[in-house]
Amino acid sequence: MPDTYEHRRYGNDHDRYGWDYSARRAPLRIGGEVKAGAFIVVPLEFFPLNPSGKPFLHPGAMVTPYPDLRHYTTRDYGLRVGVYRILKELESRGLKATFAVNALLLDYCAPLIDRIRAAGHEIAAHGLSTDHIHHAGLSLDEERHLISETCARFDAHGLRPTTWMSPARTQSFNTPDLVREAGFTACLDWEMDQVPIAMKTNHGALDCLPLLNELNDVNLLTGKRQTESEWVAQILAAARLLLDEHARRGAQLFGFTLTPYVVGQPFRIHALRELLDALVRQEQLLLTSASDLLDAFKQPAE
């Protein structure tokens, strides 16, 4: 890797989007009584028992000596049990979410994918698997092949997702150009703002929506070991602040994750129910999938 970064300059260290203070832009207004938005992302991930760890281990990957069956089966539990609890809670409230799916799971979990599609949720492409990380050590052709194979697997199942989320939400310098080249129009990897930001690519704009790592359930509940009540309170605090800021900042949005092997555990479902009920009660908050929320922000206010 070079000792100096060639794009170092005033403002951003890249030219993907303009640099400016959020307070200097005109407030966004969206239709009806909606003042803020929140989108739900449910990651469906394939964790191999023998990850390569190149260039690093995915945050949820196996950690003890091979075969790490304890962690492997916990992740498997999420796909066999936990995700269905999440689906039930979403559907009982008429909520739509974005299910970010590793392409390798499409063959392994076909009944689950059918259930998600039948319920009208959005399916986003989440790369090939947790062991296929996008990073600067890949050549342009190698990374293009990863994305092409991902798209081919979705195509084989009659799926054409327009939203992309990289495995581990990690990119190379070429990833935005390549995913836009492949037909994706929205991305959940970058979180530079509280409104959709159109990233510049060689093939047109790629809309970025802020999926907040600071509200990631894996990060808070297992990494920082916060309680379920703290997790719920922080998401609700984010929603309420954006509603309170509407008068001077206009409509804003954020995303948060519901990871099946974390939130889908039986001792945490009560917290998910509490969270969803409280968010639904916020009448001026639009709670939906990433693509539906992006559409709402792109529609001119009436």
Rank of each mutant, 00 (worst) to 15 (best):
D3C: 12
T4R: 12
Y5I: 09
H7V: 05
G11K: 15
H14E: 09
R16M: 12
W19M: 13
W19S: 07
Y21G: 13
R25A: 10
A26D: 04
G31T: 10
G31H: 04
V34L: 09
K35M: 06
F39G: 00
I40C: 01
V42R: 06
F47Q: 04
L49V: 07
L49F: 15
P51D: 02
K54M: 06
H58L: 10
P59T: 07
T64K: 10
Y66C: 11
Y66A: 08
P67Q: 11
D68F: 13
R70V: 14
D76Y: 11
G78Q: 03
G82I: 00
G82R: 01
Y84W: 11
R85E: 07
E91I: 04
E91N: 10
R93G: 08
A97H: 01
T98P: 04
T98M: 04
F99W: 05
V101N: 01
N102C: 12
A103K: 00
L105R: 01
L106D: 00
Y108G: 06
A118S: 14
H121N: 02
E122I: 09
S129V: 09
D131M: 06
H132G: 00
H134I: 15
S139L: 04
S139C: 02
L140G: 12
S148A: 11
C151I: 14
C151D: 06
R153I: 03
F154D: 01
A156F: 11
G158W: 06
P161F: 05
T163K: 03
W164L: 10
W164G: 06
A168F: 08
A168P: 08
T170H: 09
T170I: 08
F173G: 06
N174P: 09
D177F: 09
L178P: 05
E181F: 15
A182Y: 09
G183Y: 13
F184P: 02
L188P: 01
M192C: 14
M192D: 15
D193W: 08
Q194D: 15
T201L: 13
G204N: 03
L206G: 02
L209F: 01
P210V: 05
E214S: 15
V218F: 14
N219I: 12
N219A: 08
N219C: 01
L220D: 01
L220N: 07
G223K: 08
T227E: 06
T227R: 03
E230C: 09
E230K: 08
V232I: 03
V232Q: 07
I235S: 05
A239I: 00
L242F: 14
D244I: 10
G250I: 02
Q252A: 10
G255N: 05
F256A: 05
L258T: 10
T259N: 08
G264F: 07
Q265A: 12
P266G: 09
H270I: 07
L275P: 07
D277C: 12
A278N: 14
A278F: 10
A278S: 15
L279E: 03
V280M: 07
R281S: 11
Q284N: 13
L285E: 07
T288E: 03
A290C: 13
L294M: 08
D295W: 06
A296K: 12
E302Q: 13
